[in-house]
Design a binder for these strands. Structure first.
Length: 484
RNA sequence: GUCCCCAUCGUCUAGAGGCCCAGGACACCGGCUUUUCACGCCGGGUACGCGGGUUCAAAUCCCGCUGGGGACGCCA
């Protein structure tokens, strides 16, 4: 059974790049009927905190990337926090020392810094490498802290067949006797990673491109341990719109920000999947399709740039594909903290009708709320400039007459209502335009919204009449808080 | 500086030697629809970085160059 892991370090929120790595890993596990393992890499205590770990779990939960083993759910290969696995790392490291492929290094960070500085001062162009101070020594001092380093043979090269990039070989000359275990007993990234992947029986490791350089040292560790390495999949980076490393300056990078902005998790998944992965000309995918169609072969090799407009388009498309029930649920949730609305309109069908009219002009849930809110308030919030432009004295008089027409109609059925209105307009030699805009503003407070007859249908006769007549008397208003 | 990765429209990409004087999507520009704004529909422009090979044939294979990105920690 395939075992794939996602191993974030809790240094902050889960960003887009991490989310995509998690997604691809999850997709592979699910498509293979395998296990998706979540491990928290929190060995660098200085930079880590609980809140970050929780934010990452929350992000994954929201995205629907459920894990079979890891924090909260446990599993047979725990613990799933590196900070709780110190004994395991120590054990592996000492085993390597005993076997003679790794050694204790008593050099202090200060000594090493001095050596590094000297190297820099010498003007040498070669990168600094640990000079092998303790490589062959066994005169270990008592009670001194020591790090454990791997003995690396500088000859030859180390390589692997990457699942997305193909064959990669890196000369061992570029390696050095790197540290496995720090003097404080905590493992360095490469070592902790290998020990955990090994003891958690992971067989596919997917991670960002920036880890390509970590792979040779890890391979060397597997070799020293006498173990088979897993397969690696290095995903190209997600860059900012101008090609730099994606950061907060360029976009919302935390997935939770998209949740809060009213994006749908499936839309985030879809957009992320299409950044670097493709399936012919198809752009829109459900989560199930992604699982069915995903493969490493169709993951691209070059970096992709983040494009907010395309993301929004994908989001809008997914929003429009939601069932009326789900949509209503999402809108209700968004409305739950809105004290101004009259909850009676939530239950009598008004909400559902209103949502149906809003869906073509909204890309996110908050945008749906913006366009239908008029129908849930006792009276509309008037947009000042729309009011000034359309609610002229003449227009208000017309609206009052229109209200009278509506009151006299035998039916509230939209097509009949429209026919009657057309006749009424024709008799006065007026265009639809002359009525629609003032009416829209009177009814919704906004100059941009659904079609007039849709709005009338949403509001019903009583509320429509009231608003049309109020336009003449109470306006221009502003006491509700004028939005522009 | 050293090592590694990458290279098709503005952006995401399709393309695994002839189907490609390069297809789709977003964006952009026109138009239609029209009661505003959208949605929708129709149409348009724009790309294989450069130079060498290999081949009857190259966006596709090879080499070089250029350009971009990444990594060079007792960080992850």
């Amino acid at each position: 059974m395939v075992r794939v892991r996602f191993a974030p370090s809790p240094t902050g929120y889960l960003h887009l790049g991490g989310a995509r790595t998690a997604l691809f890993s999850w997709l592979w596990a699910r498509s293979q009927g395998g296990r998706f393992v979540l491990r928290i890499e929190d060995t660098d205590r200085a930079r880590h905190d609980e809140a970050s770990a929780e934010a990452i779990l929350e992000s994954l939960r929201w995205l629907g990337l459920d894990w079979d083993e890891g924090p909260e759910v446990g599993g047979d290969f725990g613990p799933y926090f590196q900070s709780e696995r110190r004994d395991i790392y120590r054990l592996f490291a000492e085993k390597l020392v005993a076997r003679g492929v790794a050694y204790r290094c008593y050099a202090t960070p200060e000594e090493l810094k001095a050596a590094r500085d000297a190297h820099t001062a010498s003007g040498s162009k070669a990168p600094f490498k640990y000079p092998g101070l303790w490589r062959d020594r066994t005169d270990w001092p008592d009670n001194q802290p020591y790090a454990i380093r791997l003995k690396v043979d500088a000859r030859g090269q180390t390589g692997w067949n990457d699942l997305v990039k193909g064959r990669i070989d890196i000369p061992n000359q570029t390696q050095q006797d790197f540290i496995l275990l720090r003097s404080d007993g905590l493992p360095l990234y490469n070592f902790g990673c290998v020990v955990d992947d090994l003891s958690m029986k992971i067989d596919v490791v997917a991670r960002g491109d920036d880890h390509v350089i970590n792979t040779p040292p890890q391979l060397l560790i597997y070799e020293a341990l006498g173990q088979e390495p897993p397969r690696f999949a290095h995903l190209p980076m997600i860059l900012s719109p101008n090609g730099e490393k994606l950061s907060k300056r360029h976009a919302a990078v935390s997935v939770l920000e998209y949740r809060d902005a009213g994006y749908l998790p499936e839309a985030v998944l879809n957009y992320l999947a299409r950044l670097g992965w493709s399936h012919g000309d198809q752009e829109i995918f459900s989560k199930e399709e992604l699982v069915r169609l995903f493969s490493w072969e169709s993951v691209g090799t070059s970096a992709a740039r983040y494009d907010a407009k395309k993301f929004l388009h994908v989001q809008a498309t997914h929003l429009r594909q939601q069932s009326p029930e789900r949509l209503a649920e999402l809108v209700r949730d968004a409305l739950s903290s809105d004290a101004a609305i009259d909850t009676r309109w939530l239950e009598d069908g008004t909400l559902d009708k209103a949502i149906a009219t809003a869906i073509s002009r909204a890309a996110t849930v908050p945008e749906v709320v913006d366009t239908i809110r008029y129908a849930l308030l006792p009276k509309p919030v008037l947009d000042a400039s729309a009011g000034a432009k359309f609610l002229t004295e003449a227009a208000c008089a017309l609206l009052a007459d229109f209200a009278t027409l509506l009151e006299g109609l035998p039916t509230w059925e939209s097509s009949a209502l429209e026919a009657a209105t057309q006749d009424w307009l024709a008799a006065r030699d007026l265009s639809m335009k002359a009525l629609a805009q003032p009416a829209r503003v009177a009814l919704t407070g906004q100059s941009k919204n659904a079609g007039l007859f849709e709005i009338l249908d949403v509001l019903g006769l009583a509320r429509s009449r009231e608003r049309l007549r109020a336009a003449g008397s109470a306006l221009p208003s502003g006491d509700e808080g004028v939005s522009s």
